[in-house]
Computed example of a mutant assay.
Amino acid sequence: MILVAADRVLGRGGALQLQIETVAGDAGVEVDAVRARFPDVLALATAVLRFRQEQWLTGLAAAAVGISEPRDRILALFSYLESCFMDDDWRGCAFINGYGELGRAEPTIAALADEHLASIETHLRALCIEAALPPYVADGLSLLVQGAKVEAAIHGTTQPARSARMTAAMLMSVYEPAREDLFI
């Protein structure tokens, strides 16, 4: 309950607005109950980012359920992004925002943002290998993901996810797998 409330507060106002008193009020608990679990704002922000990472990984896994084609699983990631952008509470990537607000001064936040980006790159690299794409294509796909997150946050629209998905499809088409039936 406290972590969910903290996530809402972070989403509404960013890391600089994350206050233990505000979270306690949003969660409907006493300030001491929040302080017992999270002694300071950095501990609270760190917990929220870890919570967001779990949500992200769960969402990615759910987006790929039932999709057997590796290239389609790559495109499903962009569909998942679009669903994230549709959420009325979505105000941008918590990791990008957290890094921008606190990451330069707080190494813990910077490390969590780096870890999040690395997890996306690792996931995309694995999908590229499964899809018979060069692993370095994952770097370009990662830029599409991050760019879509930033643009969607600024413009308040889902369009960047669709544009990134289309661009990803075009990029993958450059690496069409060889068809044996062409040589028969």
Rank of each mutant, 00 (worst) to 15 (best):
A111R: 14
G13A: 08
M1H: 13
Q55W: 05
L112E: 10
I154E: 01
G28H: 01
G92E: 06
Q55L: 12
D40V: 13
V137M: 14
L10R: 04
S83R: 14
I67Y: 00
A63F: 10
E115D: 11
L117R: 14
Y99C: 04
L133H: 15
L44G: 07
P107F: 14
R179T: 13
A33G: 09
I109L: 13
P160S: 10
I20P: 01
G103P: 11
L16T: 08
R52Q: 12
I74K: 02
D114C: 14
L10F: 15
A62Q: 15
P160V: 07
A47R: 02
A132H: 13
I74N: 02
L141K: 10
Y175D: 08
Q53W: 04
I120T: 06
A94V: 02
L18S: 02
A43M: 07
G28I: 06
A76W: 03
R12Q: 10
A94Y: 02
A15Q: 03
E115K: 07
R37T: 05
E130I: 03
A110Q: 14
A61T: 10
A161N: 03
L42F: 08
A45T: 01
L57C: 07
E30D: 03
W90Y: 15
L18A: 08
I129P: 01
E54S: 12
E82M: 09
A126W: 04
E54H: 08
V29Y: 00
L44N: 05
S79F: 00
D181T: 12
R8T: 04
L171T: 13
S163I: 04
D7V: 02
G98S: 12
M86T: 11
W56L: 03
R73E: 07
A76F: 03
G92Y: 11
A64P: 01
E180C: 02
D32Q: 11
R71W: 06
A132E: 14
L182Y: 11
V145T: 05
V23T: 04
A118S: 06
A5T: 00
V41R: 14
F183T: 11
S142G: 13
E106Y: 15
F38W: 01
A153F: 06
R125K: 13
P160E: 09
R179P: 03
V65Y: 09
V137K: 14
P134L: 13
I20W: 03
D87K: 10
L124K: 05
A169Y: 00
Y80M: 06
G11A: 13
I20F: 11
L18G: 03
Q55E: 14
Y99E: 09
L60E: 07
E69F: 02
A63S: 15
A47H: 02
M86G: 04
A164L: 04
D7T: 12
I2D: 04
D87I: 08
R50G: 02
C84N: 09
G100I: 00
E180F: 04
R162N: 05
V34T: 00
Q19S: 09
L75G: 01
R37N: 09
D139G: 05
S142F: 03
D114I: 09
L10W: 14
D87T: 08
L182V: 12
P177M: 11
E130H: 01
D88C: 01
R162P: 00
L171W: 08
C93I: 06
D89K: 07
V41A: 03
Y99S: 03
G92D: 07
A63N: 06
T46W: 10
L143K: 10
V41P: 00
G14D: 11
R104T: 07
